[in-house]
Design a protein around this nucleic acid. Structure first.
Lengths: 116, 116
DNA sequence: ACTCATTACCTCGTAGTTCAAGGTATAATG
DNA sequence: CATTATACCTTGAACTACGAGGTAATGAGT
């Protein structure tokens, strides 16, 4: 029942994580982020603009990102950068991500580690 | 905007993957799967019955699972097992899972591997 | 000049998912 | 006799990714 073309499964929250991660290194604009994700994942993950822009706006509204407009060759780019709040949120998401991936990995390999 | 109580993020498709994986090892019934996932992931992932049962029904309808009713102590259990189709689907999902996790991992650690 | 691809921003509707809460019924426990 | 555990199930709400579409400006090709 997935029947999606690009990234069929396992994508909830991933775009937000990637965007937040990229914007802690350097400031970028939306259109740039779309291509940066494609490049950084070696074509493995492609997120459209319809995914990126709404996340950018939501994160800014939450105080996770700051933005500034910059005119380049007559066109206007909106550059985003992660704030302190955004970095805190990124830490949370990375922890969540690790928790989930480790748990899934444990089940996929039938490792019955009886801990705790 | 997560504001979810149990597993806030990164959970799309994961229940289906785990269920399919468990049912390739031995046949299980719904209520058992709920607890098996909790146990196998060391409490890291908890999926409710409201998640498990619909997936079970959908997978059976797709031919990924076979079911048989078994009365135990007056109660009726519905045991599910993965079919050949189900195992094929599991292979697909595991491949997808690996692709996504590797891609995300590469971005999280700023590994700029210029390949291809 | 004219056309087309690229850059760069954006919104909307649809589909698919998880989740909590609730509903039914039997067996075991106190 | 009441409560918990077993065991099945459905439903409504909330969220998210996705594709398609819309607006403009720039640059290249012809």
């Amino acid at each position: 029942m997935p029947s999606r073309k690009t990234n069929p499964e396992f994508m909830t929250g991933v775009p937000e994580l990637l965007i937040l991660r990229l914007l802690t290194e350097r400031e970028m604009y939306g259109y740039e982020i779309v291509q940066a994700i494609e490049a950084a994942t070696g074509e493995a993950i492609k997120v459209g603009e319809g995914v990126v822009y709404p996340i950018l706006h939501a994160l800014e509204e939450q105080g996770c990102l700051s933005s500034r407009k910059k005119p380049v060759n007559g066109r206007t780019r909106v550059y985003y950068a992660a704030t302190a709040t955004g970095k805190k949120r990124l830490g949370l998401l990375m922890g969540e991500w690790q928790r989930i991936t480790e748990a899934v990995g444990a089940v996929v390999k039938g490792t019955k580690h009886a801990n705790a």
